[in-house]
């Protein structure tokens, strides 16, 4: 299997965009201009990027409140995302959602949710709809290891397998549900071992290799389009570098070892891809992305005014 420079460039562009956008969020957060709790993806970006680069534009992704990476990897609108964090009407959810409720229907980013596990059955229902309409798009459902604790996760796995739906489940296993460690919540740390009994193909990638994630997804998605495979489950072990919510480190809390994170930092896929990329091209990508980020923050800083009736808009479709 050879990976062409084009893929490296795509990986780098996406990883760099996500990392740098979130680093800017970290920088700006103390100013209190961002009126929204942020659950940063820093360190976990490679899962979204590895999976989403293997998708088509018309494929659909569902995700969680830790959703900046998924949103940006699917090239959701950066201006609208930052404006949403700022609480502006120019945001993707008109300032009614915030960081935890990002959406870009045109790009196939379905709205993210702040209740753990809740978008999983929605993604299954969407796949049911695609199958019914005989579309060859597929759905990817992103969630964390905390979601596996929820009853609705198991209901959704069962139903997706029962109906042989065109869906890839991607569990980003960062081993912590807020601060609760996985082996204090499950008898076994291997989620695939449990899920395979629902009747679906499973794959566990433990080393954070973005190429493994991409290659697996590419093969699976092609098969899912043929409609006879049924759901597939991918577990990607990963690591959240920052605190559960907010822009800071959290080692002072003492619930996890710094060493755990250090291994993942040494294994950072962004650095790895940077070194694989042609230096000149990488610099060009960096320059373009930096410009996009600066533009998005400037756009969000602009004064906008809400009509006071706006609070009552969008409750019902008339």
């Amino acid at each position: 299997m050879t990976i062409g420079s084009t893929l490296i460039e795509r990986f780098y562009r996406s990883l760099y965009l996500i990392r740098r956008t979130e680093e800017e969020i970290v920088k700006i957060y103390p100013t209190d201009k961002i009126k929204s709790p942020v659950h940063l993806s820093i360190g976990q970006e490679f899962v979204s990027v590895g999976v989403i680069e293997a998708l088509r534009c018309d494929d659909i992704v569902f995700g969680t409140y830790r959703g900046h990476a998924m949103y940006l990897a699917k090239t959701g609108n950066l201006r609208k995302m930052i404006s949403e964090l700022y609480g502006k009407i120019t945001g993707c959810s008109k300032g009614k959602g915030g960081s935890m409720h990002l959406v870009d229907v045109d790009k196939g980013v379905m709205g993210t949710s702040a209740i753990v596990g809740t978008t999983i059955p929605l993604s299954v229902g969407y796949a049911l709809g695609l199958k019914y309409k005989k579309s060859d798009s597929v759905v990817v459902s992103f969630f964390g290891d905390g979601a596996v604790d929820e009853g609705v996760f198991h209901e959704s796995m069962n139903f997706a397998a029962l109906k042989k739906l065109p869906i890839l489940f991607v569990c980003e296993n960062n081993k912590y549900a807020i601060h609760s460690y996985h082996i204090n919540r499950h008898d076994s740390d291997n989620i695939c071992e449990r899920v395979k009994h629902y009747g679906m193909q499973v794959e566990r990638i433990e080393d954070g290799d973005i190429f493994k994630i991409y290659n697996f997804t590419k093969n699976v998605i092609d098969s899912l389009r043929e409609r006879d495979l049924g759901p597939v489950f991918l577990e990607c072990v990963t690591c959240r570098w920052k605190e559960h919510v907010g822009p800071n480190d959290d080692f002072h809390l003492g619930y996890r070892d710094k060493e755990e994170v250090e291994w993942w930092k040494a294994n950072d896929q962004l650095n790895k891809i940077r070194m694989m990329a042609d230096d000149k091209t990488a610099k060009l990508i960096e320059s373009v992305v930096e410009h996009e980020i600066a533009d998005a923050f400037n756009f969000a800083e602009e004064n906008t005014v809400y009509n006071e009736k706006e609070i009552y808009e969008d409750l019902f479709k008339e």
């Binding site: 569902f62 379905m110 809740t118 999983i120 059955p121 929605l122 993604s123 299954v124 229902g125 969407y126 796949a127 049911l128 709809g129 695609l130 019914y132 309409k133 009853g151 609705v152 209901e155 959704s156 069962n158 139903f159």
Partner: peptide, 15 residues
């Protein structure tokens, strides 16, 4: 699976 099936209905509606 009342919770899951309700979610399936919502997802199907979005589709």
């Amino acid at each position: 699976s009342e919770d899951g099936i309700t979610g399936v209905a919502i997802g199907a509606a979005l589709a």
